[in-house]
């Protein structure tokens, strides 16, 4: 499996120039306008990983990958671990620069804010990515991309309808639980989603013909 991770990392290295330039631009914007740069995390992580899927698809890598020892299992496992690795690295970078921006502008480091927003963004990013992967393995990156936009659009519509229809004052107790244990619940939920997503992706890939 390490070989498959190395292959994905080598692909990311191939795009490194563009990624570094983008990162520098956003960080510079953050320094210039005291902007919160947490949005870089989902944006860059998703972009990096989707580009690896696109290259794989374009060069029919998957058909070749399954001819390698344990190709089907290792290919999927490596994608999930690379995703985790990339999200972690980008998170560390974002935390560092977020702290620096805060220090430069206020002469103080707002650790509390950074430690709250960045992990939530990291978990959300992981959640979004792992939710996409089964669709990508099932339909390929191009078709899945359309599906993903559809799902996100659907969630937004359902969400906005719920906000209009639900009387939130009646479920205030649920909010107090979220306030106390929200991050923990979110973390458990994300990890659970990750495991379920991996199992589904693996099942799809094990049966897939190329």
């Amino acid at each position: 499996m390490i070989g498959f991770i190395k292959k994905d990392l080598a692909m990311i290295k191939g795009n490194m120039k563009v990624l570094v330039i983008l990162f520098i631009v956003y960080v510079a914007m953050g320094f210039a306008s005291e902007m919160n740069i947490s949005f870089i995390l989902p944006f860059m992580s998703v972009m990096i990983m989707l580009s690896t899927f696109s290259y794989d698809d374009f060069n029919k890598w998957d058909a070749y990958a399954v001819t390698l020892p344990n190709g089907r299992k290792n290919s999927v496992r490596a994608k999930y671990l690379t995703t985790f690795l990339i999200v972690l690295v980008v998170t560390i970078l974002v935390m560092f620069f977020e702290t620096m921006i805060s220090y430069v502008h206020n002469n103080t480091i707002d650790f509390e804010n950074v430690l709250l927003t960045v992990p939530i963004t990291m978990l959300s990013t992981l959640l979004v990515e792992v939710m996409m992967y089964p669709a990508i393995y099932k339909w390929g990156i191009e078709k899945a991309r359309i599906g993903i936009f559809g799902v996100v659009f659907g969630i937004e519509i359902v969400g906005s309808l719920l906000i209009k229809l639900i009387d939130f004052s009646k479920i205030a107790s649920a909010f107090s639980i979220l306030e106390n244990y929200g991050l923990l619940l979110f973390m458990i939920g994300t990890l659970l989603s990750l495991v379920i997503s991996y199992k589904i992706s693996l099942k799809i890939y094990q049966r897939k013909e190329f």
Binding site: I2, K6, A10, Y55, N59, K60, Y64
Partner: peptide, 19 residues
């Protein structure tokens, strides 16, 4: 059907060592 075209022969060697 092969490795993605963004890679180099050195990258293939780098990955295949662990495959």
């Amino acid at each position: 059907m092969f490795f993605p075209e963004i890679l180099t022969p050195n990258d293939i060697n780098f990955a295949m060592k662990n495959i």
